[in-house]
Amino acid sequence: MGRPADPLAMSPSRPGRTRTAPPVMPAEFPAQGRYRSYMLFGACCVFFLLSSLLVLRVVDALATGPDAWDELLRQFRHPLYLAYNVAALAGFVFTARRFLFQLFAKSQPPRIGPFPRPPLAVFPPVLGAAWLAATALLFCILWGAFP
């Protein structure tokens, strides 16, 4: 048996005449077996929150001046920041993979206005190619390939 569910889960709006046993959650919920991937997906929102705050910090440093920017870059070399970046990258890749390759295609309705949905089989290779292209572009920018 799983842990208790909300006592009113799937109950009728008016109680019936028969006394019922309270509902229970699925046995493996929240973090075991088939729910693990779902919980990890949800947990990755922490990385989005923290990274958004980091972006605000970067913008603040840029607005403050060169000294603040240099100080920020110095702090970013701290091992804790580097470890966070590695963990955040893993989280973002996991989220993108689950969202783009499992959710995105089948979330498209059969028609969007006058346009029919492309075949579902088209989505993974197109999204994969777009992902690779974006990654390559980002690498080129970071590498200094563009003057």
């Binding site: 889960a9 799937m10 046993a21």
Partner: peptide, 17 residues
Amino acid sequence: LSNFPVIRDLVVELEGF
């Protein structure tokens, strides 16, 4: 079935559904 009130043994309440 999980998430459903149980009427008896393996029989669940369907009214909410």
